[in-house]
Design a binder for these strands. Structure first.
Length: 278
DNA sequence: ATTGGTTCCTGCTGGC
DNA sequence: TGCCAGCAGGAACCAA
């Protein structure tokens, strides 16, 4: 499922092949994903040059030469694949909702079977005020992110820390998998009240979040069933998961047998070690 | 104001 | 072997 590391991996792949290129032609194969796409999407993109590709939270930001920014969210099944000029063309699929053709022959496909993804535009100079980005919390890989900042974001929150980590207003980019992994690394119980994560616990959690996200990016993200890098290659961080998807197995840290449990929190699966997470 | 529940969507999986 | 209900999940939205 695309969380911060998967989106970051996609952004790096896109930046490598899009920046400086002109968008020659755009195919928009349906009007909507999770929400309607801009009606003038094709006209706003065709003929423009790509100035930069960046990431904010789980959003891919493609900045055009007129200052317009394309916001793309992969939802849970979204993928973007790139076929370079001279390579075999990537195969057309019924869920290829938007296809970009660049001036050098590169073809990019936004594919999303479940259509939980999203594509929108921000007017020049108005990115910060875009409704999808307003209120999103700090970037966990930013230089200012630490235990104190995290504790401040959690202050007054009477919800389990696991649920709080999924709230994009608290920290940007964390999803179900990395919330579980970070809590395990920090030895914190997922059901602990968010507002009690202060001091050394907050320091530990902030460091764990940074650590797990950085290692996941280095591995090209985690691939389960949908996610692939822009090259079509799989990420391989799923092999390094310590709790996610390991219900009934021994803890990889404390080695207690069958200590990895699964519970439902806010309608989602939480995996944790019943022995070493407090 | 914060929080919990619902909803969107399709493909895969597990149980019979 | 085949069928299908149930599940997976990000985040907007709604209700309390």
């Amino acid at each position: 499922m695309p969380e911060l590391p998967e989106v970051e991996t996609v952004v790096r792949g896109l930046a490598r092949h899009m920046v400086g290129r002109h968008i020659r032609r755009v195919e928009k194969n349906r009007p909507d994903l999770r929400a309607p796409m801009p009606v003038d999407l094709v006209a706003r993109l065709e003929g423009r040059r790509v100035a930069a590709v960046r990431r904010r939270a789980k959003y891919i930001l493609v900045e055009l030469d007129d200052g317009t920014v394309v916001l793309a969210h992969l939802g849970m099944s979204g993928r973007i694949t790139i076929a370079l000029p001279g390579q075999a063309p990537n195969r057309q699929d019924p869920h290829d909702h938007v296809v970009l053709h660049l001036d050098d022959g590169t073809v990019l496909r936004f594919n999303d079977a479940r259509r939980f993804g999203r594509i929108d535009l921000a007017e020049p100079g108005a990115l910060e005020a875009h409704p999808l980005l307003v209120g999103i919390g700090p970037e966990p890989l930013g230089p200012e992110f630490d235990g104190a900042l995290l504790a401040a974001a959690l202050a007054g929150r009477r919800t389990p820390i696991k649920a709080a980590l999924l709230d994009q207003r608290v920290v940007a980019g964390i999803g179900n998998i990395y919330a579980c992994e970070a809590l395990h690394l920090a030895r914190l119980s997922p059901s602990r009240l968010a507002m009690t994560v202060v001091g050394a616990r907050a320091d530990r959690l902030a460091a764990a979040i940074r650590d797990v996200l950085e290692r996941a990016i280095a591995a090209g993200g985690s691939s389960i069933r949908d996610y692939v890098q822009t090259s079509g290659e799989l990420g391989y961080f799923q092999h390094d998961w310590t709790v996610y998807g390991r219900e009934g197995e021994p803890c990889r840290r404390c080695a207690a047998s069958a200590s990895v449990r699964r519970v439902a929190q806010a309608g989602r699966s939480t995996f944790y070690c019943a022995r070493c997470q407090r």
